[in-house]
């Protein structure tokens, strides 16, 4: 467990001085503000509903870019060779990196805390709903980061890894809104795999264990695949 913390600490240090991380943080905060503003002016209600559903999509595009560095860059720098020949398990490596990226997401959400504060100043938001909305977004972020790590473990090129991560995640978005594409019957069947459907109830203030399991399972699958990709090491 202490090795997970060692990796986590190092990743947080690297994030702290990484200009790309700050750039994506800025984009994320800007879009949060924009969707918050649009949501308020369009619906006229003191809630984060519009913000939350749009922010999930923003996460889907930004988080793979934030995690693309992890294994692709370690491999390019040759540091992966050192990590994998150190007496730590590849699983601790994957877990430490994942926890660091989830921590960064947490910090990003902290940056958006001003938005509910504005709601509270002008209106009377339901704090339970605000909390469950944030919980849902954080769970989605955890799953998306795992997907980003997986794509990063597959490719040597950072940018390609980031784009591949988005490609991995797009289907989970598309199946949530598949009615127009494939007809009602099939859409009904694939809907349980959609990210947005599982976020809906969080947005209504309901924390359903099925939704929590969905994101946990998604994260677990991608982390496991990352671990397998590192273990196989057949590249080169």
């Amino acid at each position: 467990m202490s090795t997970v913390f060692t990796i986590w600490k190092k990743e947080m240090r690297v994030y702290a001085v990484n200009p790309t991380a700050y750039a994506f943080l800025a984009v994320f905060l800007f879009l949060s503000g924009l969707f918050f503003f649009l949501g308020i002016t369009l619906t006229g209600e003191a809630s984060l509903r519009v913000l939350a559903s749009n922010l999930a999509i923003v996460e889907l595009f930004i988080l793979p870019m934030l995690t693309m560095r992890h294994f692709a860059e370690e491999r390019r720098q040759g540091t992966l060779e050192m990590l994998l020949t150190s007496p730590i398990s590849p699983f601790a490596l994957v877990l430490g990196k994942w926890l660091a990226s989830v921590t960064l997401c947490g910090l990003m959400f902290l940056g958006t805390a001003i938005l509910p504060a504005i709601l509270a100043y002008y209106g009377d938001p339901d704090w339970g709903v605000v909390a469950s909305t944030y919980l849902g977004l954080l769970l989605a972020a955890a799953a998306f980061c795992a997907a980003g790590l997986f794509s990063s473990s597959l490719l040597d090129d950072q940018l390609a890894a980031g784009l591949l991560g988005i490609v991995f995640l797009l289907p989970f978005w598309l199946v949530s809104r598949a009615e127009a594409l494939v007809g009602d019957e099939l859409a009904e069947r694939v809907r349980p795999f959609g990210v947005l459907n599982h976020l809906d109830s969080f947005g209504r203030g309901i924390v359903d264990s099925a939704d929590v399991y969905y994101f946990a399972a998604l994260a677990f699958c991608f982390l496991f695949l990352t671990y397998r990709a590192l273990e196989s090491r057949r590249w080169r």
């Binding site: 720098q77 992966l80 050192m82 730590i88």
Partner: peptide, 20 residues
């Protein structure tokens, strides 16, 4: 195997920690 964004001291401390 070096991390360009870390300092010599921080890096070696990380390596020592990796070795338990």
């Amino acid at each position: 195997p070096l991390y360009p964004e870390l300092s010599v001291g921080v890096y070696l401390d990380f390596c020592a920690e990796l070795r338990g």
